[in-house]
Design a protein around this nucleic acid. Structure first.
Lengths: 343, 343
DNA sequence: TTGAAAGCGCTAACAT
DNA sequence: ATGTTAGCGCTTTCAA
């Protein structure tokens, strides 16, 4: 194993000089810096993580707590996790993967052992039982999601309320007056994860303002689930001319079922999705959508947490502004009630 | 911050005694052990990870390298990752999340910095460029997947060859003689990830032995993709009476399309899937399937790597035996060629 | 601009 | 059964 002392000897300088070359915390003459750097790659030196952590009380590790549950739309979680890992590396940090299993206890353990300099929590619930502990610990933390009480906490999330409003605005501008919302699975609403409720608030408020009639139905993300939901919507609101889908797993089934019912998109019905751009763009009909910016959320979370570790920046709530991209699934409202035709 | 010295002072013993109480590496009288343990929870002591790593040259961290790509079936990856994290914790290890982005370089960095005691690599390709480096480093490593050359390497994977054979056997026993395989997306085959090819080998060899006519088609996992593939199979082999699906994202579309074509499952056509049990069980028709045991793979990988860290066990290739569960999607072959009816 | 040296908190010989 | 002590490899004051 190559140590800093080895490098110092090889370069003919002291240990501290090597350390300072590495950290850049004091000025080094060009010649010695180059000599040291040459020794470093010649010997293939990597600083020992444990020693560094002990001496500096900084591990350069960020803990990421992901939910154990696998009933949510997993690809989004994964995309966030990967964005977190990638961005963290770009800032010189590694990522420790914690599952919800250990529960709030994990927070104590990480804090006590100084394993990580900061924490990022995904899938935060409105009254998350990890929050009190998080406030106690001195370590920086960022939540991906928005709990009810954000005191002393940093949060990053999409502004789902605005996202809901945006969908309605777009459809209203195209003349739609009867809109149905195909939502997340019932379990998601029951768990009070927040984002689903917030979207609904945005949808309802703006609908009300713009004179749009709105019907919301939770929906399992499978053909059978979407089929049942669609049938129900058809019965309850045969005049529906547009759908808003907030359930990534439901988009493909929805388009297939509409096709099957001989309903042309967007000529007969319009569809707006709230989902990752990639899902929207690669659907069988490219979907007009409000993006769930998974990568950006991960990136923001890391940047905020790194800023706090390094003493810059303070806790704040960042709500990313939703962006609606018009693709091929929305158009002017048809004159006749289309679902009635398609039955 | 509470240190081991604090605990020792509080309990009225020496530092080493506290250390040994924690590690169990030498016998301690019941009375002092209890006294120390009381001090530990009274003070809320957690050993400092950096100091421990430095002194013992063991970080108690396992690095998990996940692919950056997100085109594979993500839920399986996520399930493996979570199983790895959970199992690791049960053995006293934490998991460091590395993405493929850093490339083989990451292996050098982890090795050099002693950040992790071992590595687990997911999504291994047949001629993976990380393997040479992995063999160089002394650290234990386990691959999830099976490369061409397994010299000096530990591997865990499902025995996909046997899985393919099992599917064919099941269908042949039910009288099917014309079977179509709906495979992974073309990109998966092009990347030479191995498992897809191995399945195919098993399918073909056993088909040949049992006199089954087999047609294999790669397939995108979307409604449109499956629809196109199905149409093509229909043209090329109208006598097909059974499908084998190895593409989790294709199962739901396939069932929907068959339903749409008025083909009853299993009366008109049988369907066998190679996918996680949960996917199979919760499909609109519960699918007879060979399970991809994601959790078990993650668990095995950790247990193998932990054994090697701790000096027990050696490198070995573990191929998990496939298990076929009969559900409701397979039955005796229909007499008349069913696809011809369904067109 | 550089060096010397004192820890950081823990483990594991070596003693007793 | 327990205590004493010498490091582990690095950072960072304090000196020059």
């Amino acid at each position: 194993m190559v140590t800093l002392a080895d490098v110092a000897r090889h370069a003919g300088v002291s240990a501290s000089t090597v350390s300072y070359v590495l950290s850049g915390k004091r000025s080094i003459s060009l010649t010695t810096r180059e000599r040291v750097e040459r020794s470093i790659d010649h010997l293939g030196y990597h600083p020992n993580a444990g020693a560094r952590a002990l001496a500096s009380s900084r591990s350069n590790i960020i803990a990421l707590m992901v939910p154990l549950r696998t009933d949510m739309y997993v690809p989004v979680m994964m995309e966030i996790a990967i964005a977190v890992a990638t961005t963290a590396r770009a800032h010189g940090y590694d990522v420790l993967l914690l599952t919800g299993e250990e529960g709030p206890e994990a927070i104590r353990r990480i804090e006590g052992s100084a394993l990580a300099d900061a924490m990022i929590l995904m899938d935060v619930e409105l009254h998350d039982n990890r929050l009190p502990l998080l406030r106690e610990t001195g370590r920086p933390a960022v939540l991906i999601g928005l709990p009810t009480d954000t005191t002393d906490l940093s949060c990053v999330d999409l502004d789902f309320t605005a996202a809901g409003a945006l969908c309605v605005e777009h459809l209203a501008a195209l003349g739609h007056r009867e809109v149905a919302v195909i939502g997340e699975a019932p379990a998601v609403y029951e768990r009070h994860t927040g984002f689903a409720e917030r979207t609904l608030t945005g949808l309802r408020d703006r609908s009300h303002q713009l004179g749009v009639r709105l019907l919301h139905r939770p929906c399992e993300g499978s053909y059978a689930g979407v089929s049942a939901t669609l049938a129900r919507i058809h019965e309850e609101r045969p005049g529906t001319t547009a759908f808003i889908v907030q359930n990534e797993a439901a988009t493909d089934p929805l388009l297939a079922l509409l096709h099957q019912r001989r309903l042309a998109v967007p000529e007969d019905v319009s569809v707006v999705a709230i989902c990752p751009d990639q899902v929207a763009a690669s659907a069988s009909v490219p979907l007009t959508s409000v993006a769930v910016p998974a990568q950006e959320m991960g990136r923001h979370a890391v940047e905020q947490v790194v800023a706090r570790i390094e003493g810059r920046g303070v806790g704040e709530v960042v709500l990313l502004e939703p962006v609606l991209t018009v693709r091929e699934s929305t158009g002017r409202s048809a004159v006749a009630p289309p679902l009635a035709l398609g039955g």
